[in-house]
């Protein structure tokens, strides 16, 4: 009886957005009288930082600092339609809608600035700090604060824009299954290292090294949050989680956090996250959806590592000590 070590690898891809498309999201953007910007949506923030990312996307597109953007969302009386926050679609779909709305608002903003500066709007650029400059002559400039005041009180213009993003729905061909499930895919490769106690069947995940390709990390810290939490959930799925431990038997389902098991703060694997960026052709600033795929590769990587450690295949999730011990017994030729 011994503690045995093993490691396993898995590589995966994952589609961004609802399968087969057809999932719209809209956004509205407008400026306040003093040149702050309001993004109006009906998308839901589940904790992934939807509001923060939409603010950064709007700010980048308009050309102002992020703290000048406020996101108002999840109210059906004010926010235009969003299909919902799921299917790794929030950043991709809503982000594209916000870009389109922000571009329209930016154009009006530049037109008003052009009137104030007596130049063509096409000769203007933003400095990202809240100012609009004449290209090549940055001493000729106007603040976005002043442009917004002018638009509101002098020129009678609405610095606002409408955005809509929709991937046309694909319908699978009946016999061949020809279809377009998604327009872009995130990727991952995970190497997991485990210890298996062949006496108790207990698995300890020592390390997980995750490489994720996510298009573009729009806010690296928010991406990191998703990826670290997802990696934890993947390990949790691999080793612990089930509402029906003896499926398809319907008994013994857990009803609280004492019975429904997940790794606690004392059960964490040493986790390494590396991010690659291959911008997607239709993503907002190249982003793909990282939220779901980041929890997938750890499951097979752990399963393969368990095999590498003790030489038994557990092809049924979760990989519990009971399953490992039964497999070890079977391998040794003992009755189950």
């Amino acid at each position: 009886m011994a503690i045995r070590r093993g490691r396993g690898v898995a590589a995966i891809n994952y589609p961004t957005g609802m399968n087969l498309g057809g999932d719209p999201t809209q956004a509205l953007v407008h400026s306040t009288p003093t040149g702050n910007f309001m993004v109006t949506l009906s998308s839901v923030d589940l904790g992934q930082g939807m509001k923060q990312i939409m603010a950064q996307i709007c700010a980048e597109t308009i050309g102002v600092p992020t703290d000048r953007v406020v996101v108002d969302t999840a109210d059906t009386d004010t926010g235009p339609h969003c299909m919902g926050t799921f299917a790794s679609r929030g950043t991709h779909r809503a982000g594209n809608a916000v870009i389109q709305a922000a571009r329209e608002a930016r154009q009006v903003m530049l037109e008003v600035a052009a009137e104030e500066l007596e130049v063509n709007a096409s000769d203007l650029e933003t400095d990202g700090q809240g100012n609009i400059l004449v290209k090549g002559a940055p001493q000729r400039s106007i603040s976005i604060f002043d442009v917004a005041l002018s638009a509101h009180f002098k020129r009678g213009r609405s610095i606002s824009g409408r955005g809509m993003f929709l991937i046309p729905r694909s319908y699978p061909e009946k016999e061949t299954g020809a279809m377009k499930p998604s327009t872009c895919y995130a990727h991952a490769c995970t190497v997991a290292e485990v210890e298996v106690d062949d006496e108790t069947g207990e698995v300890t995940v020592l390390t997980v090294k995750n490489v994720f390709e996510i298009g573009r990390a729009l806010n690296p810290k928010l991406v990191e949050q998703q990826l670290v939490g997802g990696s934890w959930m993947g390990i949790s799925h691999a080793l612990y989680e089930t509402t029906e431990p003896y499926y398809p038997n319907r008994d013994h389902g857990g009803t609280d956090f004492n019975q429904y098991l997940m790794p606690g703060p004392g059960d964490l694997a040493e986790t390494e996250i590396i991010v690659l960026e291959r911008p997607s052709a239709d993503g907002p600033y190249g982003a793909k959806g990282p939220g779901e795929m980041c929890a997938n590769p750890q499951i097979p990587a752990v399963a393969n590592a368990v095999f590498d450690a003790v030489g038994v295949r557990i092809d049924t999730l979760p990989i519990t000590p009971e399953r490992i011990l039964r497999a070890l017994k079977a391998q040794a030729g003992a009755p189950n």
Binding site: E292, I299, P300
Partner: peptide, 15 residues
């Protein structure tokens, strides 16, 4: 659920 339609498939494929 997170990874809908794919998570368990990826487990199977990669094992």
């Amino acid at each position: 659920m997170r990874g809908f339609g794919v998570t368990i498939g990826d487990f199977a494929l990669e094992v």
